[in-house]
Each structure stands twice: as C-alpha cells, then as structure tokens.
Design a protein around this nucleic acid. Structure first.
Lengths: 106, 106
DNA sequence: TCATTATATAAGCAATTAATTATATTTACA
DNA sequence: TGTAAATATAATTAATTGCTTATATAATGA
C-alpha cells in the first residue's frame, strides 16, 4: 500500500499529457526513445528527459539492446496505476501506423 | 472512458500531496473547509484554493448548509480514481482525532 | 443593523516544470 | 580507428504552481 506522499509523487508523474501518453503507449509494448519521439511528434531530448523522470519514479525500466534503449512499464507492484492505464483508450492503432518507417523497428 | 488529456488533468489535480490528502479524507466523509484546514494544519485560503481547483476539475462537489460549505467526492463517473483512493491507507483515525474541538463538528 | 464566523478571491512571490537548443556519451560498424 | 546513430545531459527560458497575506463576500445571531 503506497503512502499518500508516494502516490502523490506517482500521480504527479502520470499527470502530464506527454508522460501519460508515453505510459499508455508502453502499455502496448516496450519502445525506444526514437519511436516515442516519433509517436509524440516531439524532440529526442524531450522524450529522454521524461523517461528519466519516469525511471527515477520507478514507473518504467530500461533495457539496453545495442544502440537502443528500450523502455517498458514497471508497474507490477502498482496495480492501482495499471488500472488507470486500463481506463484509457487503446494506443495500438497509433503505434502501428507511426512506427512504420522508424529505423529501429525494422 | 476518459481521454488522455482529461485523465492527465485529473491526475495532475490528484498529484499534489495536499489535494490527495483532501481527497482521501473526503473518501471517509464530507468536510467543510475549516475541518480540512485543521486536519491538514494549513491556512483557510490554502484549502479554499485547492477546493476550487478540485471543484473546477469536477472531482468534488459542494453543498452549502448555512454558514458552512461541505465538500464531498464526486467520483461516481470516475471509478479509476476511486480505485486510487482505495489504495491509500485509511484516514479515519486522523479524522476523528483532529475534528474534536472544531466548532463546525459540534 | 452590526459584529462575528465561514468561505472566497486577489495579489505577490518563490519554487517547480516542460520544452528548446547545444553538447556529451555510448554503441555499432566500416 | 573514425564516423554515424541513439541516447543522455546541461543550460536557458517561459509558464505554471502552491502558499502567504490581505481583503471581500455571505450567512448567522444578538
């Protein structure tokens, strides 16, 4: 059971449109930074800095594979946050469409 | 089903320690501003301004009764937020202790 | 009607935040 | 070994935020 402080911190992380979109994309599958930047139509450093916050807050984990760093959700211990993501519309369509043409998904 | 933007806005509201504490108190029962200020050990205008944000975001509703305005949760349409509050430790103890001696609860 | 109580609003300020731009680090591979 | 690609970090800036202090509004009751 999270403390109020801990939950408030987690919700602050999720309470940003960019980060919440990232989380809901990662619900579908792991992604690297360049895919996320493409999907969100924003810059690489912007995504990178959001990922650092999410990682510091233990909401995602990373795994490097060669040149790419793949991020995935780390919410096994936080079912109340999984519930939140489950309440959102699926991002599958956008994921499939936008990732064509991104080199790392070849 | 909320849009990503709507959920991000709601989580931003909940992602503040003061407001999340207020919400978790209101989960137990409705409260007026002076009770909340006492419980949170903060000023009346501070609580009042947080309540306005929560009200604007449709997370709480108010009902005036004489001099007092009682706030209560308005989360019937947002079960995913109720789940969040359910994940938090109960605030019953604090509520009972701190509200002794607050005039409006006599 | 006037003083009191509960609450709201407004103004000001310090701190935090999200995004941009520029640069550094790491890995792959020719 | 050197170049390119993916990612991270740093510095800057504009905007937002939470809290305080001061004041205004609304309701009660003598």
């Amino acid at each position: 059971m999270p403390s109020i402080e801990q939950l408030a911190d987690e919700l602050k992380l999720a309470g940003d449109k960019t980060r919440l979109t990232i989380l809901s994309i990662l619900k579908e599958r792991e992604c690297c930074v360049c895919e996320l930047a493409e999907l969100l139509q924003t810059s690489q450093p912007n995504v990178s800095q959001h990922m650092r916050k999410l990682k510091d807050g233990k909401l995602v984990k990373e795994s490097r594979r060669g040149q790419w760093i793949y991020y995935s959700l780390d919410l096994a211990e936080k079912p109340y946050l999984m519930e939140l993501l489950a309440a959102l519309p699926s991002q599958k369509d956008k994921l499939e469409l936008a990732c064509k043409g991104v080199k790392c998904s070849e």
